[in-house]
Nucleic acid binder design. Sequence first.
DNA 1: ATGACCCGATCTTCGGGA
Length: 257
Amino acid sequence: MKIATYNVNGIHARLPVLLRWLEETAPDVACLQELKTPQEKFPEQALLDIGYQAVWHGQKSWNGVAILAKGQKPEEVGRGLAGDPEDDQSRYLEAMVNGVLIGCLYLPNGNPAPGPKFDYKLRWFDRFKTRAKELLASDAPVVLAGDYNVIPTEQDAYKPERWVEDALFRPESRAAFEDLKDQGWTDALRHLYPAETIYTFWDYFRNAYGRNAGLRIDHLLLSPKLTNSLVSAGVDREVRGWEKSSDHGPVWIELNI
DNA sequence: ATGACCCGATCTTCGGGA
């Protein structure tokens, strides 16, 4: 079972690239972030035409997450996180596919930091950790996939010294990610490739992709019972070089279940 | 040190992204 995550940075602008990537790599499940489209304008039919059914949580202009499955309808479990009734941003969606619970997340960026946006990021992270702990207590195998907007370690940035004041790399953000993993989650890519340079994002400026000036901020976390099922993982980094690409590349894992 | 590039808004310019 192949599960991927891809921050598309606008699903309408990205549709040709998204469809090509799905057809060429054929993931069984694809978690998408930054749809940037209202609920009613999600391009459901274009995905159906190539064999993908979807559940999604849209929002005008910003955010938005979706879970796609090949040849079947993802069974939605829930949307949004508990703990803040005033939070109306579309950043979290859960669905079951083939007995695996998939959590698709778009964690807040948090810049500028410090400030209210950084506070929101850390509060959101706390609410997410609460949900993650609940999921660990359930029976289902779980994959938490998405754009975490966290650079976990110095190994995960092209020039980490440039990011020390940034919300993606500040100690609070890294500590939150560590706390989450300490619940029992496995960072799939890092687990298979402990010493490799792995990036999932290259910004649009300064020819970052051409220079491989990237960050690793998109992650797939596995619940304990899935760790032994992990057989391979990677980043489809060539997609970042396609015409009209997102600034993120797709990240995927293959589970033997 | 700065600004560089994209997105979706409905504005020919802006906020947000990371």
